[in-house]
């Protein structure tokens, strides 16, 4: 037996503790979300009727199954409020992802063309904001965007506007906040594919008479599509469920689904509806998650 195989056996045993932890604190909780999304709302603590109680035997279990209620999901489908917040989440996520691509691509492209030594520095500079608190970075923008904030002061001083503009509680502020927060997530996968690209391909294109612009659109861009896909999904998926940014920067007329879930849970104390919203949000995210997983696997195969 090879040393590698012998080494693998105790290595597999290392999985036991993290495996149990993730089953208990990641997988099992989803079962609870599903269960409570199917139960009735009551005014109590905790505010829902229990659905299953395994200790009461099979008869009780059968009775419980008969009581399962899809009312919460029916509410989600019938109430405009929820449908609108789903649509809004999708629109916001798609729009922000497109803006992120438009801004992130030139930055990643610039990074990939820096001399080798500077690439590491640029990479570090992009990663640092990822380490810095999300909340603090959004708060920094509130400082700038508020009524008498820096942006309005500059605009007034330059006589671009004659009265302070309302920036906070608008969609533009929210998009700004999202783009600002997620930019590193877009740049890094793009940079990863662009920097691996073989420069001689471009030289060949140049030798064959392609202008730099043609070389970019015919060679560089098509080859960078895996990075585009990874970056787009890496941004799109969490933005759909985003809560903090729209809550602090956007107006309150239409809520994103993450905000609706939060509102149902913390303000209305309607746990079953909040759980139903979570299940629906999760279903919405399954296709992009599967796509992302496939893309990663293909990339791993290509690398090895």
């Amino acid at each position: 037996m090879s040393a590698r195989r012998i080494f693998a056996r105790p290595a597999r045993l290392a999985a036991i503790a993290p495996y149990l932890w993730m089953v208990l604190f990641f997988l099992v909780p989803f079962a609870f979300v599903l269960k409570i999304s199917l139960s009735q709302t009551v005014i109590a603590q905790p505010p829902y009727t229990p659905v299953f109680d395994v200790t009461e035997g099979r008869a009780a279990l059968a009775a419980a199954f008969a009581q399962l209620s899809f009312d919460n999901f029916r509410l989600l489908i019938s109430d405009n409020l929820y449908i609108l917040s789903y649509l809004r989440s999708l629109v916001v996520a798609v729009t922000s992802t497109l803006i992120l691509l438009l801004i992130g691509y030139p930055i990643a492209y610039g990074m990939a063309r820096l001399p080798q030594r500077w690439q590491a520095v640029a990479m570090m500079l992009v990663i640092v904001p990822f380490w810095t608190s999300f909340l603090i970075r959004i708060y920094a923008w509130i400082n700038i965007l508020q009524h008498d904030g820096l942006l309005n002061q500059i605009l007034l001083a330059l006589h671009i506007v004659s009265a302070p503009v309302v920036w906070l509680s608008t969609d533009s502020a929210m998009y700004l906040g999202i783009v600002y927060s997620y930019l590193p997530f877009m740049i890094l996968p793009l940079y990863a594919t662009l920097s691996k690209m073989d420069g001689s391909l471009l030289e060949a294109a140049g030798d064959l008479g392609a202008s730099p612009r043609q070389a970019f659109w015919l060679v560089t861009f098509p080859l960078s599509l895996p990075g585009v896909g990874a970056g787009a999904l890496l941004c799109f998926i969490p933005i759909v469920g985003e809560f903090v940014i729209p809550d602090l920067l956007a107006g309150s007329d239409t809520l994103m689904i993450g905000q609706t879930l939060w509102l149902e849970f913390f303000t209305n104390k309607d746990w079953p509806v909040a759980s139903a919203a979570a299940v629906a949000l999760l279903l919405l995210l399954v296709p992009p998650l599967v796509l992302y997983d496939r893309l990663q696997r293909r990339q791993l195969k290509a690398d090895s």
Binding site: F25, F26, P29, L281
Partner: peptide
Amino acid sequence: VMPEVISGLSLLL
């Protein structure tokens, strides 16, 4: 990539 609202809610339950 899981939205935090889902992880938070499920753990609370």
